[in-house]
Simulated assay, not measured.
Amino acid sequence: MIPWSEGRWLNPPPGVRPDGDDLLVTAAEGSDFWRTTGYGFVHDDGHALLAGFPPGSALEVAFALDYTEQFDQAGLLVRVDERNWVKAGVEHSDGAPQLGAVVTRDHSDWSLAPVPEWAGREVTIRASRSGDAVTFRARVADGPWRMFRLAPLAPDAAATAGPYVCAPTRAGLTVRFTSLTATAPDQSLH
């Protein structure tokens, strides 16, 4: 386990409160990470608690999936700079939780897969950095890992990573993060 105090906030949220070993994070209304594609706007005001993410490492973030408003989201952000980053987690979209990722290299893309059975449970997102890529996996509770995205990340890029939360359409979203863990990177894609 990594202590929450080891990270530094990118865009400090309006509310952060320890609760035992958990960290409760309240997002600002209108917060998000997105660049241009499809919508024509740039948002770089989501909240992320970031620490170093060197080559050959992996990071896991766990949180309670108990949010239900359109575009509420939480997960793990890997960031090089404001034009190069990946957010991977669960976003509430079209009435259901959706496992997804936004990969940004000057312009954002977005992929989603519905996971309605994950509602109300603990979700863990893992990012494994190896070679020229970062692999994202997710699971609910102690279920099996599910690979959902492979994204480019230059071997020499100075990256940071950690939990993120955004509330693009409302005020009052608070997410309970339950753990932040450094681990060995995955040895294979499958």
Rank of each mutant, 00 (worst) to 15 (best):
L50E: 09
L24G: 10
A171R: 05
A28I: 08
D106K: 05
V134I: 13
D44V: 00
A74R: 12
T68G: 15
A113G: 09
P14S: 14
G46Q: 01
A113D: 08
G162R: 06
R35K: 15
E122K: 13
D81T: 11
L99E: 07
G52Q: 06
V103Q: 06
V42E: 13
L112V: 10
A151W: 03
E82W: 03
Q187L: 07
G30S: 11
T68H: 15
K87R: 08
A96D: 09
L50C: 11
V115K: 00
D21N: 13
V134K: 04
V140E: 10
E29T: 11
L59T: 04
G38M: 05
P152L: 07
R170G: 13
D66Q: 09
N84W: 00
P14Y: 09
L50Q: 09
G75A: 10
A157R: 02
I125P: 06
V103W: 06
A74K: 13
N84G: 00
W4F: 10
P97Y: 02
V78L: 12
R139S: 08
A51K: 03
H47R: 11
P55N: 05
Q187D: 05
D156N: 03
L112H: 05
S128W: 05
A158N: 05
A184W: 03
D109R: 07
L59P: 03
A182N: 14
D132H: 09
D81E: 12
S188W: 08
F63Y: 15
T169S: 07
G52K: 05
D142M: 12
A48K: 02
S179Q: 15
T135V: 15
V16Y: 03
V102A: 15
L76E: 11
G56S: 08
L99D: 09
L59V: 07
W9Q: 05
A51H: 04
T181M: 03
F136C: 14
G120K: 06
G100C: 04
S130A: 11
L189A: 13
P14E: 14
R83M: 03
V102H: 01
F71N: 03
Y164G: 04
R126I: 08
A133P: 00
W4A: 10
G162W: 01
A62T: 10
R105D: 08
V115A: 04
T174E: 10
A96R: 14
P55E: 09
G7N: 12
G20K: 12
A96K: 13
Q73N: 02
A28Y: 06
E69K: 11
E69W: 02
G30A: 11
D19Y: 11
A138Y: 02
R121P: 00
D132E: 14
R139C: 11
Y39A: 06
L50S: 09
L59E: 01
A151S: 15
S130C: 06
V165K: 08
R176A: 12
D156C: 00
T169A: 09
